[in-house]
């Protein structure tokens, strides 16, 4: 079996394992929903990482998606409508900002994204009478496709949507990365001038990936808002962006499974660290990241892929 086949199989197994875990331990369902949502956002970051660009500001789109849900929910209280609305909002904003930031590379790209996300954070905090500041906005109970659901079914539905979106976006990203557009992303990382010589516009290649990644982050934000039912400006703070990059490194940028492996590991480590030593969880998370950087530079997926390839070769 090739690695791509194995990846597919692993995705299936992983999805099954998540459902099983959520069934056996009800409280994990929520944690895993959040993990899947963050995985989707990190998948978008991974697309940009392929082009060698690190965005330190993608929490902007997560928060935008979440606040879109919070603002629209009173007039449009249905998850099936809110999700596309949030995706559309972030896609539009992502295009506008993307037109601008896709001119820049590396540290400038990262810092501009960071700056814009902090501008959005300040707006959420300062436009107090509209956003209720740091106290945040409560998301009212939502229907799903017109159905009113009780708490447990609602949680399962959001979990189901998150899982479906994760698999859908994962499959899409795989196709995208294998396509000429995706291959051109890798070319931006290795030598951008070569693209110019081929007549391919590096800017539009990066812009397309940027809009995609913004949309994914927006969907993630919408899912987070629907699951937690309360949004605060902290979602767009720079630490939230850092968290996404952290997960990307932890999971590894080599394959589309990486972000989800990273996100699930991150959330589980944090929950179990917080459960065992409530005031030391940062230290434990930090130690895990250090170990990954020192001993597994390709992240969790890198480790896994290496082992699978060795076995394939033997």
């Amino acid at each position: 079996m090739t690695l791509r086949r194995i990846e597919l199989l692993l995705a299936l197994l992983g999805a099954g394992a998540l459902v099983l875990a959520a069934m056996t331990t009800p409280w994990l369902k929520f944690v895993l929903t959040i993990a899947l949502a963050k995985g989707i956002a990190v998948l978008g970051i991974m697309l940009l990482l392929r082009a060698g660009q690190v965005s330190f500001g993608h929490a902007l789109y997560v928060a935008l998606g979440a606040y879109a849900v919070a603002f629209l929910a009173p007039v449009l209280p249905d998850a099936a409508l809110l999700l596309p609305a949030a995706a559309l909002t972030t896609a539009v904003v992502g295009t506008l900002i993307g037109l601008f930031v896709s001119r820049y590379r590396e540290i400038f790209f990262g810092m501009l994204n960071l700056a814009l996300s902090m501008v959005f954070y300040s707006m959420l905090e300062k436009f107090y009478h509209y956003t209720k500041g740091t106290d945040g906005i409560r998301v009212p109970p939502l229907t799903v496709a017109g159905l009113e659901l009780d708490r447990v079914t609602h949680e399962w539905t959001i979990f189901g949507i998150a899982l479906a979106l994760a698999l859908g976006f994962g499959a899409f990203a795989r196709v995208y990365l294998a396509s000429p557009m995706g291959q051109a992303l890798t070319a931006i990382k290795t030598r951008e001038t070569r693209l110019d010589f081929m007549g391919v516009s590096a800017r539009s290649v990066l812009l397309a990936a940027y809009v995609l990644s913004a949309t994914m982050a927006g969907c993630a934000g919408a899912l987070i808002a629907m699951a937690t039912r309360h949004v605060t400006p902290l979602l767009s703070y720079w630490t939230a962006s850092g968290e996404l990059v952290f997960i990307a490194i932890l999971g590894g940028a080599g394959g589309v499974l990486g972000p989800f492996l990273g996100a699930v590991t991150y959330e589980l480590v944090r929950v179990y660290a917080a459960a065992t030593v409530a005031d030391m969880w940062q230290m434990i998370l930090g130690a895990v990241l250090l170990l990954v950087i020192l001993f597994a530079r390709g992240g969790i997926w890198g480790l896994l892929a290496l082992r699978l390839q060795r076995r394939g070769a033997a």
Partner: peptide, 10 residues
């Protein structure tokens, strides 16, 4: 943040 807190609450 809220997502962690709400998860821990559950």
């Amino acid at each position: 943040g809220i997502d962690h807190l709400v998860g821990e609450f559950r």
